[in-house]
């Protein structure tokens, strides 16, 4: 147990290391491009460029540059954005993280509960009109671009029908920290997270439906019925238990990807100062240190989430715990 935990942690660190090297190479070791000038931004004075070159060690060998960079990112955390007039990058990312986390948590809540309801309903009522309707709705949700849907939501709730009783409660665009007002926080995130969740509900409901239907054909489900278990128990207790695995792995990856900045479009559309919007800004201004920081942040999240999913897997399926696959 401890051994597998240690080896797992080691693997994680190795992957993060690999990603950091890769990211570093892409940004700083691309032949024919001077990283100094890129960090300094457009139209920087020669003094600034010289200072940057000395500070980041761009006149020294690549490994030293890499170590300097990582030291600035993770240890002293004083990587500075020159485009943004000396703003420190790491605190900025850390400040944006809670916003993204709140948004994604809410969205996850909506898409998990939504897809559970839709997925189970259409599996139980398979091939009925309810099933077909739900699957068509899911497909529509899946194929609506999130930025378009967000703009439509904004149009409807912020201007067109804002003054009707339906949307009077909708706060102006932006974020309200939980510490400031929990109610305000919830209200500010409700529509953005629902918008973000829509496409996931469609996808997850489909996955759950097909997994559930496969599971219901298993011998163990027949056994459950032979034991005298009722339909609710058979579907929810036995069926779900067998169909969790791909759902959970999909969820882990999507969740991590969103936390790492994948909610970019939603954040931009709803003016939420999260990691995604930060990345968007960094890209718009070619702010190299900020891009570096957000990419590393995203990588760390994806790796951690992967490890958590694997752990959850082992909890859900004893066969995986012992390193056996299949049956």
């Amino acid at each position: 147990m401890i051994r597998s935990f240690a080896s797992r942690t080691g693997q994680m660190l190795l992957v993060i290391f690999g990603i950091s090297v890769l990211v570093f190479c892409i940004f700083f070791a691309t032949p024919g491009a001077d990283p100094t000038a890129r960090i300094a931004g457009r139209g920087a004075s020669p003094q600034v460029v010289a200072r940057i070159r000395a500070e980041y060690g761009f006149d020294r060998p690549l490994p030293v540059q890499y170590v300097t960079m990582m030291q600035k990112l993770f240890v002293s955390r004083d990587l500075t954005s020159f485009v943004n007039h000396g703003q420190r990058v790491v605190p900025e990312v850390l400040q944006a993280a809670p916003v993204t986390l709140s948004l994604v948590l809410w969205a996850a809540f909506f898409w998990v509960s939504g897809s559970l309801v839709f997925g189970i309903a259409s599996a139980v009522l398979r091939d009925s009109w309810v099933d077909r309707l739900l699957m068509v709705l899911g497909l529509i949700g899946l194929s609506m671009p999130v930025f378009w849907l967000g703009e439509v939501v904004n149009l409807v709730t912020q201007s067109r029908w804002h003054d009707t009783f339906l949307f009077r409660w909708v706060p102006p665009l932006g974020y309200v920290p939980f510490s400031q007002s929990p109610w305000g926080w919830a209200k500010a995130l409700f529509l953005p997270s629902l918008t973000l969740a829509v496409c996931f509900i469609g996808l997850y409901a489909r996955v759950l439906r097909s997994e559930l239907l496969t599971a219901m054909g298993e011998d163990s489900i027949r056994t459950a019925r032979a034991k005298g278990a009722g339909p609710v128990r058979v579907w929810l207790w036995h069926g779900l238990r067998l169909s969790w695995l791909s759902y959970v792995s999909l969820f882990g990856l999507d969740f991590a990807q969103l936390l790492g900045g994948g909610a970019l479009l939603t954040e931009v559309v709803f003016a939420l100062p999260g990691v995604g919007r930060l990345t968007y800004q960094a890209l718009a201004t070619l702010d190299l240190p900020l891009i570096m920081a957000t990419v590393m942040y995203a990588a760390v999240f994806v790796v951690i989430a992967n490890a958590l999913v694997d752990g959850l897997y082992a909890l859900l399926d004893p066969r995986i715990r012992e390193g056996r696959h299949g049956r």
């Binding site: 459950a224 066969r319 049956r327």
Partner: peptide
């Protein structure tokens, strides 16, 4: 079905060919 269910497993019970797949593998 409600009444039949009360019989299943209590009044009459069944065992299957392949106990590997007949049991839920994850419990």
């Amino acid at each position: 079905d409600r009444e039949w269910r009360r019989l299943r497993g209590a009044g009459m019970a069944m065992i299957f060919q392949d106990p590997m797949t007949a049991f839920l593998p994850v419990r």
